[in-house]
């Protein structure tokens, strides 16, 4: 029964997403364009040999996977949570017998995983058409749970960050910064191995790598199963952080109102 408090909202969010066919087509089209362009660039860059240990084929699968991980997320999630705090929508959610943060995490994770399930076959077609099958069968299989974890970590961290809107109200700066950090330090545009040594070490130690780099390098055949455990660790950290921030935010709203 307790599980249904989370699975029911996640399931409804998934059905809601699938009912919005136009939205899914637009996300898929964006995903195709970005993946094709970036994969093409990387294939050109590797025409004379591997870059940072990645061949053109590997980088194509890297990009297709990294873009799927990020396109599956609502790009304005942090901003929208901030708007909901300010507009009083979160206050209304406090009238339900469940933690606002918990239900919101379930809804967004359900939505993101459904979007991912739609993008995955699209990505497989792009990769296969461009360079043939994934370089490594084990990597391809492990990339699926790594993608699911990547999406879940991203959703949880965005909730933890967006929680500042209970105090600061305007989250646009946080959203802008977060997005850029995922772009660069998350390995969305390029493998972390391409970065200078110091930056690479910093990026590897940050949670952003769990959101794109880990599933992408796994799909590219650079398999390191331990990284999935790191993803799981970040997931626990950010779920706990998001729940704590929302819990504190709810208590603040009880004191000051909206």
């Amino acid at each position: 029964m307790r599980g249904r408090r989370l699975t029911a909202p996640a399931g409804a969010a998934s059905r809601r997403l699938l009912a919005d066919v136009a939205g899914l087509v637009s996300v898929s089209a964006f995903y195709v364009v970005v993946s094709v362009v970036l994969a093409g660039l990387w294939r050109a860059a590797t025409a004379h040999g591997p870059v940072a240990g990645y061949t053109g084929r590997e980088l194509t699968w890297y990009i297709v996977t990294a873009e799927a991980a990020t396109c599956a997320i609502n790009p304005r999630l942090i901003e929208e949570i901030g708007d909901d705090v300010v507009s009083g929508a979160v206050t209304v959610e406090m009238l339900r017998p469940a933690a606002v943060g918990g239900v919101r995490l379930a809804v967004e994770t359900g939505r993101a995983l459904t979007r991912l399930a739609v993008l995955l076959p699209v990505g497989a077609v792009i990769g296969w058409t461009a360079v043939g099958p994934p370089p490594d069968a084990t990597g391809a299989l492990l990339a699926v749970p790594a993608l699911a974890l990547a999406v879940a970590v991203n959703v949880a961290m965005q909730h933890a960050v967006a929680g500042i809107s209970f105090w600061l109200r305007d989250t646009r700066a946080a959203w802008f910064l977060y997005q850029k950090l995922v772009f660069i330090l998350g390995g969305m545009l390029l493998p972390l191995e391409v970065l200078p040594d110091v930056l690479r070490h910093v990026a590897s130690a940050l949670p952003f790598a769990a959101m794109a780099y880990v599933p992408a390098r796994t799909a590219a055949g650079h398999v390191a199963p331990g990284l999935l455990l790191v993803q799981a660790g970040w997931l626990v950290v950010f779920v706990v952080a998001a729940l704590a921030v929302f819990g504190a935010g709810e208590r603040r709203l009880q004191e000051v109102g909206t």
Binding site: R5, T7, P97
Partner: peptide, 9 residues
């Protein structure tokens, strides 16, 4: 209703 029923246990 399915979602709300879940939230309300």
């Amino acid at each position: 209703f399915r979602m709300l029923a879940g939230v309300y246990g």
